[in-house]
Design a protein around this nucleic acid. Sequence first.
RNA 1: GGCCCGUUCGUCUAGGGGUUAGGACGCAGGAUUUUCAUUCCUGUAACACGGGUUCGAAUCCCGUACGGGCUACCA
Length: 509
Amino acid sequence: MENIRLRFAPSPTGALHIGGIRTALYNYLLAKQLGGTFILRIEDTDQNRFVPGAEAYIIDALRWCGLIPDEGVEFGGEYGPYRQSERKAIYRQYAEALIASGHAYYAFDTPEELEERRTADENFKYDYNSRKTLRNGLTIKTEAVEELLAKNEPYVIRIKVPENEIVRIHDLVRGEVQFQSNELDDKVMLKSDGMPTYHMANIVDDHLMKITHVIRGEEWLPSTAHHVLLYRFLGWESTMPKFAHLPLILKPTGQGKLSKRDGSRLGIPVFPLSWNGETAEESFVGFREFGFDPRAVVNFLAFLGWNPGTEQEMFSMEELIQAFSIEKIGKSGARFDFEKAKWFNQQYLIASDNAYLANLVRPIIEKKGHNPAETFLQAFCGMMKERVVVLTDFWENGHYFFEDFTEYDDKTIGKKWNTDSTGLFTRLLDALESISNYDPVAIQAGVEGFISENGLKFGDIFPILRVGLTGTVKGPGVFDMMALWGKTEVKRRLERSFALFNQQIAKQV
RNA sequence: GGCCCGUUCGUCUAGGGGUUAGGACGCAGGAUUUUCAUUCCUGUAACACGGGUUCGAAUCCCGUACGGGCUACCA
């Protein structure tokens, strides 16, 4: 039985957006399902686009999502190095082997010369036809080529695409796709700086690392024909990996595929983690910082372009590993729907136990300068979890648990609070004081008793009690909160608030 | 422009020759509730278009339209 090996191979050119994470996820799921190995390879062959910190970001992001590589940069393994820049020498020998077998050639055309050809003919392609008129090993005599090489003349190595052939690729998502070889250009394999292009490095590494399945974005479908040709020319066709090209993730609004800018444009995260670029324009908030639980992000992403064919929507990573299948990957682009992402998050938060939540919420509360006791925090999380969508809502909607509110619902108070209220509520406070067993049930009984004894209605008491306690008309059950806070704190809060309310009506008069 | 891929409610999607075309998000209404939320119920809304093939097409085939990707010494 073959050893299943899949890889996620991003370029460290900046923060990795959610589309990249989804690609990693699908690779991870299939690897785990088949008992295989999930590998992280860094494709840093473009020295111009290299961004410091991007590699660390990618690893942090994968860790946060729970997509831990078994092998790769920072994770070890027997097929290293896993950074392509450290494998530079390897690629050259294969590029030269391609030349030796007549499947590639040296090309001496300068970027400027090619640019000129492109401006002259906008359909210009370096292909089976035009290569006859360019400066390369096919048009220059062998000795002259040797001479140029000896003189250190810059050159690239290009693949020699055969004429009049049909290149067939079998894609696990799309079935058979054909390309007419005359449509294919002679892509550069080795750049003049000695680095391979993606195409070369990818095929060599996938072969050397014994990759069995390539799951990647649809943007690679057109160049897969070149990749198949390379496997053939290098004699590796029999062990060529299976390909699966994923539908792209589309912008939430408008047209085209999701891009980095869509996040800031719409005020929503499109990255797993925040990224601090050189400028504000290049900086992005992540799902993590926005208040997402990684389980929700993973669940949401899994469903962007795939679904199990059942009506189950909530899937743990383990369940995804069980249920995942390439056959069920969709073919058309999936629009990024932030509303759905939030819904997933809310579902996870509601279903989480209080201790788990307290762990995630604590840093948020501490950042605001509060250091609550663990039991208090957990009780808080328990009361709030059905009222939040993202983790930051715990503070947004429940800050009054930790600090005195400064703004309150003055509309409600304006309607309900009058000059007689202080007297009434002071008596309520006294009634509250006399409750011996200060738990939610007893408090409720006390308040209800007070209401009926005084011939009042719920509406006369509750809005003021709630706003007095929390500043807002929304929130957990008042009696639950009161029990958590205790008699003294309840008294303190209410007395403070009554003073505030009296100031408000004083101003109105 | 050329090549390649795609097209079921607004969005994510199930289904795949005969279905009341199913679910989820969103939205609207209702029930429960001390508020808000949760939960539950109900509603809203789709097979891009045109031709075939067939007794019958959303489903198969061909076109068209529309959308997307690629077209670098970027990945």
